[in-house]
């Protein structure tokens, strides 16, 4: 195994350890209620952890970190469209209230 390949495997295993740790952290924060936050605050923290995990998979396992900008654009456009759609849904809900 070359040193570059060895480093790549080591990075993959490091990311795996982070992902596993973040899963367990999310479960512990949610189930044991150790954060002095209301339920909505805990949801926000756990949702943030999920976003970090998804980001780690996308950046390091899907290699978006070193990929062309066009691919990053293609991957991000659906998220932007959905964020726009959700903001319309929620803004209309608030207007009704």
């Amino acid at each position: 195994m070359t040193s570059a390949s060895h480093a790549s495997v080591r990075l993959s295993l490091t990311i795996w350890a982070w992902l596993a740790g973040l899963v367990l952290l999310g479960v512990i924060l949610s189930e044991l209620a150790i954060l002095p936050l209301p339920h909505s605050g805990v949801i926000a923290v756990v949702a943030g952890l999920s976003t970090v995990k998804a980001g780690l998979v996308a950046l390091y396992y899907m290699h978006l970190k070193g990929d062309r900008r066009l691919l990053v654009f293609v991957a991000l456009v659906p998220f932007l469209l959905i964020a726009l759609a959700l903001s319309v849904v929620f803004s209309s809900a608030f207007v009704r209230l």
């Binding site: 899963v23 999310g26 949610s30 756990v46 949702a47 952890l49 999920s50 995990k53 998804a54 998979v57 996308a58 396992y61 899907m62």
Partner: peptide, 12 residues
Amino acid sequence: HFVDIVWIFLFP
């Protein structure tokens, strides 16, 4: 990886 990312959001 995409399938994994979807589950990362579905699980919580």
